[in-house]
């Protein structure tokens, strides 16, 4: 896609080879429809006030459906501008497996949750850990390996990452 990055975060996404969409909560379902390759599964994002509408995704899939999916859609609780990293919580609705198993990951992040750099992200994380132990992963770009003698994307995790940035949140 030929979209020019408008923010540092988007510029970092471009450097790592990821794509992105800027949209609002109202246009969320349409953005998802455009970003996914079917079959697609998703975690429930109703607690973010987001509705998948008529986007062709299976929300809250079974493990079998997850295994058969090409795209997984999840929320990300934080974005990091410097490297285009996303913080994916290891939560009960399955953000970890849904972001990991399918070969395409579509991450949804609120623009207000995008912080400048790693120290700023760790400030936020420190506050969260102060409330109790947390589990989450910083994911930066696609899964990759050089172990077979050349760089290959898409090993145990996604081959491609697309980020939906919600500008109204």
């Amino acid at each position: 896609m030929a979209v020019q990055p408008q923010t540092e975060f988007e510029a970092a996404l471009r450097r790592q080879g990821s794509s992105w969409t800027r949209t609002t909560s109202d246009a969320f379902a349409a953005a998802v429809t455009e970003a996914i390759e079917t079959p697609a599964v998703a975690t429930d994002l109703s607690d973010w006030g987001l509705d998948f509408g008529d986007a062709p995704v299976t929300v809250d899939p079974t493990p079998r459906e997850l295994l058969g999916a090409t795209t997984g859609v999840t929320g990300a609780s934080l974005g990091v501008s410097s490297y285009g990293s996303l913080l994916l919580p290891s939560d009960a609705k399955g953000t970890e497996p849904v972001s990991l198993y399918p070969e395409r990951h579509v991450a949804v992040v609120s623009e207000s949750d995008v912080v400048e750099d790693v120290p700023a992200a760790f400030d936020r994380l420190g506050d969260e850990f102060a409330e109790g132990p947390k589990s989450a992963v910083f994911a930066t770009g696609p899964s990759a390996t050089g172990d077979m003698g050349a760089l290959v994307y898409g090993v145990h995790g996604p081959k491609a990452v697309h980020v939906i940035v919600l500008t109204d949140r």
Binding site: S82, Y83, S85, V118, K134, S135, A136, V137, F138, A139, T140, G141, P142, S143, A144, G157
Partner: peptide, 8 residues
């Protein structure tokens, strides 16, 4: 710059 996955 940063690992692909930093899991906590």
């Amino acid at each position: 710059d940063y690992p692909q996955y930093l899991t906590m």
